[in-house]
Design a protein around this nucleic acid. Structure first.
Length: 760
DNA sequence: TACAGTCGGGG
DNA sequence: GTGTACGACTGTA
């Protein structure tokens, strides 16, 4: 018998039986243990069906134990008698279930499509990187395992991770890479991709000597690993990618899928065994929260790290709900089988709407505070006990019933997030923990946000549309109560949007001026509320189509600390050329330098117009690198499915003609050009010449973007157009070779690809 | 003018 | 192995 302490890195099924668990030991050793772990699913059967199921199972090449059990069904709200099918080898369970479903499709199956890591979490409280103590026999089979921490702990003993970073020296979609950038343990190498043998031998020695726990790549799923594996197979050198003996790679095919109203593309994936591969470009929110955020998602959701990194947060919150259900001995439905409950017309009238949207008072405002409800929807779910199996209140009343599945799942997550937010507010800015805390809260935010949307999807495993509506109804109620409280205290309500409100009162410039209102709102709604900030000035924009109509979601402003908030304007959009976005931001940052509106109007507007003139001059004299003029848009369909030759469709057609295939959800980048097509795709064999760039069009876009942020100060597009006309070089753009590189381009404002920092 | 196609949310 | 909103805006014809 051996005893062992360490962090659980990964666990997975073994084809030969039992499951493998890989640990990072406190002794520094990376060690695998085995564990006997049968996987059970349940079936609701009458006597004849039970006979048929037993007959089917007998014919299968799998050892199963059958028994009848009483399990609680969430939607029936009572315990049901179900047949438990305990599959001794967990590896066989998914396939066995699929065959059973095919053979006997009319039965109700439960716990049938639950990931192994979730089953394990429900029994042993495990999660990725959990600190464990275990006892194992001499063959390495675990006899006892204890988890010493929880996903809700904030300051954990950090596991000593070994991280290897691999990336090609260029984006393989644009040009063929020549070398591989390799970083580990504060070392940085550049390995040439040719000759192949030397490269592979080098990599082999790094993999076996450094023995990384994580391999973080760029284009690793879609380009790098497939290439390296292919080369390796051809030469027979044998790179030790996996730690688990005898396992090949876990491949997942590329796919396009629909999520929140748009097509998303996810490239092919390559998973490893006993070691973690994450492709940053293929990871869900990599740019948002880096490795700490991914590890937090993984801890909270109990999904394997390689899965958590690439999965949507919908799968994440669903996993958390499944673990809650399993831990409570509740049945996890395979398919949602629930019809929408009948509703009276009155209920429909009250609840069947989304979040509250208000029409703001357009124009420039001062003495404005922005008040936000903190995690409004999740807080409502917890406070009002909103869950598919409960009868929620519509009047923000706290529930005295025992908490349902969703509140049980959310409450600890919400607590952890609030604790972290408080810590972040207290910690000095130089504290090294801040960065990690920010990544954790960002990961948590996505899970919380998605939980709401997920509840509203009628086919979600634990979804129920009435629950979704109860949340938005309570949200609207909270905002209306906040509005009353504000108006009763002499504030003018400028705007409300889903979970925030903007209130104005002459002379209100200090947090104390808003405190009474905050207290009143918290008291009237029972929800947490915070003063997000006080604006030096804020502007709500009218519709571009009709200047008389305000729109809810286009505004920008500067807080007292000088930070900028903007929504819906060009800089925020992913289809704005970097040059246009950067110029708009540059103007805003200039305006943010003014202490108040008076000073701004007197001393800063000339400078703003000067910035526009300067950038326009850069544009028309060919000083802007072509990359900064690229527009990037997401393809929503296959090429043949386009009926209108929109710019992205035209650009894709050009790429397609050169044999490049893009899938729906992938982005296409292009320039606006003067030729017949009007656009030119980026990534064609020939580099475009600057003289074909439609500078007049970029000029119009630039003036439009400047007009968006200057219009509240009296400089609309039309007025800007008159002042900036006559800038030289319009008729005579310079060739590309004359491009200078003003410091503006290298300030990071515009850089879109940057390599990761070396971390030790 | 009609309508097809794209974006947002977060930091 | 996700979770098919909806309104603003732009471009094409």
């Amino acid at each position: 018998m051996t005893e062992f302490s360490g962090w659980l890195l990964d666990l997975f099924e073994n084809p030969g039986g039992g499951i493998s668990l890989w640990f990072i030991g406190v002794n520094g050793k990376r060690q695998r243990f085995l564990q006997k772990f049968p996987a059970t699913f349940f079936v609701r059967v009458n006597e004849t069906q039970a006979v048929a199921l037993k007959r089917f199972l007998e014919k299968q090449n799998a050892v199963v134990h059958l028994s009848y059990q009483e399990r609680y069904d969430l939607f029936a709200r009572k315990a049901l008698r179900v047949l438990a099918v305990e599959v001794q080898n967990a590896y066989q369970q998914p396939a066995l279930f699929r065959k059973a479903l095919h053979e006997l499709p009319d039965l109700q199956y439960y716990d049938a499509d639950v990931a192994l890591s979730l089953r394990h979490a429900a029994i042993y409280n495990t999660f990725p990187l959990a600190f464990c103590r275990l006892k194992a026999d001499d063959q390495g089979w675990i006899q006892e395992i204890k988890v010493m921490d929880t996903p809700w702990d904030i300051d954990i003993k950090p596991p000593p991770l070994r991280v290897l970073r691999l990336s090609p020296d260029t984006n393989p979609e644009d040009s063929t890479p020549q070398a591989l950038i390799v970083q580990y343990a504060s070392r940085l190498h550049k390995l040439s991709l040719q000759p192949v043998r030397a490269l592979l031998i080098n990599l082999k020695s790094i993999l076996s000597q450094y023995d990384p726990d994580f391999i973080l790549t760029r284009w690793g799923d879609t380009w790098l690993l497939p290439r390296l594996i292919e080369m390796d197979n051809a030469t027979g050198i044998g790179l030790p990618w996996n730690r688990e003996p005898g396992r090949s790679f876990g491949y997942r095919a590329e796919r396009s899928y629909f999520s929140y109203g748009q097509i998303i593309y996810r490239g092919q994936q390559i998973h490893l065994f006993g070691r973690i591969h994450i492709d940053q470009g293929n990871a869900m929110f990599w740019s948002d929260y880096e490795l700490d955020g991914i590890l937090e998602t993984s801890r909270l959701t109990r999904l394997p790290i390689q899965t958590a990194a690439r999965q949507s947060s919908g799968t994440g919150i669903s996993s958390m709900e499944i673990v809650t259900a399993l831990s409570n001995g509740m049945l996890v439905p395979y398919q949602k089988q629930q019809a929408e409950h009948a509703k009276t017309a009155l209920e429909l009238l009250h609840s069947d709407q989304g979040g509250l949207v208000y029409q703001p008072l357009t124009g420039l405002h001062t003495d404005v505070g922005e008040i936000d409800f903190i995690s409004m929807y999740p807080s409502i779910m917890v406070r009002c006990n909103i869950s598919p199996e409960t009868d929620p209140s519509l009047a923000l009343e706290p529930s005295d019933e025992p908490p349902g599945l969703i509140p049980q799942t959310l409450a600890p997550l919400l607590d952890k997030r609030i604790k972290l937010k408080q810590l972040l507010a207290e910690l000095p800015h130089w504290d090294p923990r801040r960065e990690r805390y920010k990544q954790l809260t960002s990961a948590q935010k996505w899970l919380l946000v998605t939980c709401f949307g997920y509840l509203g999807y009628k086919n979600a495993r634990f979804g129920r549309i009435e629950a979704h509506e109860a949340i938005t109804a309570n949200g609207r109620e909270a905002l209306l109560r906040a509005k009353e409280a504000a108006e009763a205290r002499g504030f003018l309500l400028l705007h409300m949007y889903v979970d925030g409100l903007w209130v104005q009162k002459e002379g209100a410039r200090h947090p104390e001026d808003f405190q009474d209102l905050l207290d009143a709102i918290a008291e009237r709604t029972g929800l947490s509320i915070s003063l997000n900030g006080i604006y030096r000035w804020v502007a709500f924009l009218p519709s571009r189509v009709d200047q008389r109509v305000p729109v809810a979601n286009r505004y920008f402003g500067v807080f007292q600390d000088g930070s900028i908030k903007m929504r819906g304007i060009e800089t925020r959009r992913h289809d704005t050329a970097p040059f246009i976005a950067a110029t708009q931001l540059e103007i805003l940052q200039h305006l943010a330098g003014a202490e108040d509106v008076q000073t701004l109007k007197e001393k800063y507007l000339d400078g703003a117009v000067a910035i526009l003139r300067m950038r326009l001059h850069n544009l028309l004299s060919g000083e802007v690198p072509l990359e900064q003029l690229l527009v990037s848009q997401r393809l929503s369909r296959e090429l043949e499915a386009y009926t209108v030759p929109s710019p992205p469709a035209r650009a894709y057609a050009q790429l397609h003609a050169h044999g490049k295939v893009l899938r729906p959800g992938q982005r296409v980048r292009f320039l606006y050009t003067l030729d017949e097509a009007g656009v030119r795709a980026w990534g064609l064999p020939e580099m475009p010449d600057f003289k074909f760039v439609d500078t007049a069009r970029y000029k119009a876009l630039l003036i439009q973007a400047a007009g968006t942020v200057l219009q509240p100060f009296g400089w609309d597009e039309e007025r800007l157009g008159t002042v900036v006309s006559g800038i030289p070089a319009e008729q005579d753009p310079l060739p590309l070779t004359r491009i200078k590189s003003p410091s503006f381009w290298s300030e990071g404002l515009l850089s879109d690809t940057k390599y990761d920092q070396v971390t030790s």
